Amino acid sequence: MSDHRILLIENPASLSVDLGRLRIRRDGFDDNFVPPKDIAVLCLHHYTIQISVQALRVLADAGASVLVTDEFHHPCAWLLPQVGNGDLVRRLRQQMALDSSVAKGKLWQAIVQARLSTQAANLRVLNRRGALRLERLAKEVQPADKTKCEGQGAKHYWAYLFDEDFKREKEGAGDAINSRLNFGYAVLRSMVARSLVMAGLNPALGLGHSNMENPFNLADDFIEPYRFVVERHVALGPSGEFDGKARKEILRFVEQEIKLNGAGYRLPAAINESVASFVRVLDGRGEYLQLPQDALLQRNEEYPWE
Rank of each mutant, 00 (worst) to 15 (best):
P75A: 04
V112H: 02
E287Y: 05
V230D: 09
G244Y: 03
R189K: 10
E164I: 10
L42H: 08
M198C: 11
G262C: 11
C149L: 01
S210W: 03
I250M: 09
L137G: 01
Y303V: 05
Q50N: 02
F183N: 04
L92N: 11
A144V: 04
V254P: 05
P35Q: 05
D38L: 13
H74T: 15
V275A: 00
A246H: 04
L236H: 03
D163K: 13
L289D: 05
A60D: 09
Q290R: 05
L7T: 11
W108Q: 08
E171A: 14
S100M: 07
L267G: 01
L15F: 13
G200M: 03
I271K: 00
G174P: 03
L98V: 08
P268D: 09
R129I: 07
E255T: 07
I177D: 01
Q152R: 10
D18S: 13
G206C: 11
L236G: 09
V17Q: 04
A204T: 10
E71L: 08
P35H: 11
N178R: 01
E164T: 15
H73S: 09
I51D: 03
Q142Y: 02
V83I: 06
I6T: 07
G240N: 08
L236K: 12
F183Q: 01
A193R: 10
L297W: 14
F222G: 00
G286D: 15
A246T: 06
S190P: 08
G208F: 15
D243N: 11
L196A: 00
A40L: 13
A110R: 12
N122W: 02
K104R: 15
N214C: 05
E273D: 14
A176E: 14
E302P: 00
E10C: 10
L188T: 06
S2Q: 08
Y226D: 00
A219V: 03
H156T: 04
A193V: 14
M96I: 12
G244S: 15
E213I: 08
P268W: 08
N178V: 08
A176I: 08
R57D: 11
E306T: 08
G264A: 13
Q113D: 04
V234A: 06
G206K: 10
R128M: 02
N300R: 06
I51R: 06
P225Y: 02
L80Q: 01
E171L: 11
N300K: 05
R252F: 11
Y226T: 11
P268F: 12
G63R: 04
Y303Q: 07
T48V: 04
V41A: 13
D31K: 07
K148L: 03
Q256K: 10
G237S: 15
I6V: 15
K37Y: 12
Q119M: 13
